[in-house]
Simulated assay, not measured.
Amino acid sequence: MIIDAHAHVSPTSYGSTENYLEQLRQGGIQGGVVCPGGMLDVRQFNAYITGKSKPDVVPKNDYVDRSVRSNPALYGLVCVDPCAPDATEVAARYLKDGFRGLMVTPLVHKFSFGDDVMAPLASLCGEHEAPIYSHVAFRPGANTCDYVALARRFPRTPFILEHMGAGHVDNEASAAAAELDNLFLETSLSSYLQIVLSVKQAGASKVIFGSEYPLSHPAAELQKVLLLPISEGERDRILGGNIRALIRAESASTNA
């Protein structure tokens, strides 16, 4: 069973759940892990990088909630601003209601992985055996080394590093995944070379297929994994086995 472990859905023309489900069908992909999208209009990404546009800082968790309740092939991630006073409370409520993990985004919300506000969230996810997802940013406090340091502090909490770290090849990320039992690398938007090197260094058990919908098409991202020179058993783990274990898909009584 193939699961896209990283997609953003939003009530927009370009990032809707309906459009995502159609792209999964086109790619022969059976399920997806979805989190709030639309905070950045990915069609105009450069405007955010240059500071011309500001993100919508309010995650649309309610849209994800409705999406997963009406589509049993989808699993939800809650997104919070770690600096918000009620961040842990909101995350706890959604995890209790059946969401399978937490996403934080240092590109939208201005926090650092070493900030005190991350500790209660990391502890909460450890208690729920729920993974934390995040990308890294090119600023102090939000780099690969900072995310790795957070994973070291909370060994009971699974951490998924989106896009396999920073840049086309992040050797620091693959080395850390090889060392830490609780750090996993997600493939979306990463280079084919980075995936090859990470599987070789960290093993197929530490690599997870994702698409970063709507910025990329799940079927397009899937091809990079299908072309890997690995065994079918390794491919099966990357394409679904690893994420199913991390989100405890088999034990989910509801996909809320």
Rank of each mutant, 00 (worst) to 15 (best):
Y63T: 02
G38H: 09
R25G: 05
Q194H: 15
V42F: 13
N143S: 13
G98N: 05
G37Q: 09
S134M: 07
I230Q: 07
T17F: 01
G203M: 02
A220I: 13
R25F: 00
N255E: 05
G37M: 06
N171A: 11
S216E: 11
A84Q: 05
Y133H: 13
Q30R: 15
Y63A: 05
K200S: 13
D81Q: 08
G76M: 03
F209E: 08
G167A: 02
A73H: 02
P11L: 03
G28C: 02
N171Q: 14
A5K: 04
L227Q: 15
K110W: 03
H6P: 01
P214C: 08
S205G: 15
L239I: 10
L102R: 06
R156I: 00
E129Y: 10
V207H: 11
E162T: 13
S211F: 05
Y213K: 08
E212F: 05
A166P: 00
A178K: 14
G114L: 03
S190I: 12
L180T: 11
A142C: 15
S10Y: 01
G210R: 06
N143R: 15
S191P: 15
H163T: 12
V42E: 05
A202T: 10
E22C: 02
L150P: 11
A91F: 01
F99P: 02
K52P: 02
N182S: 04
V199E: 13
I243G: 11
I49G: 00
Y94F: 13
Y94M: 01
A119V: 10
V196E: 14
G233E: 13
K96W: 02
L102H: 10
Y192M: 01
E232P: 03
T157A: 07
Y20K: 05
P82Y: 00
E221A: 03
Y75H: 15
D56M: 06
H163D: 10
L228Q: 09
K60S: 15
D81H: 07
F154Q: 08
E221D: 03
F184C: 09
V104F: 00
S198A: 15
P120M: 00
I238C: 05
G167K: 05
S70R: 13
I132C: 07
A151F: 01
A91Y: 06
K60A: 15
G37N: 02
Y147R: 06
L185G: 11
S16P: 13
I29G: 03
P85Y: 10
R237A: 14
A166T: 10
L121T: 10
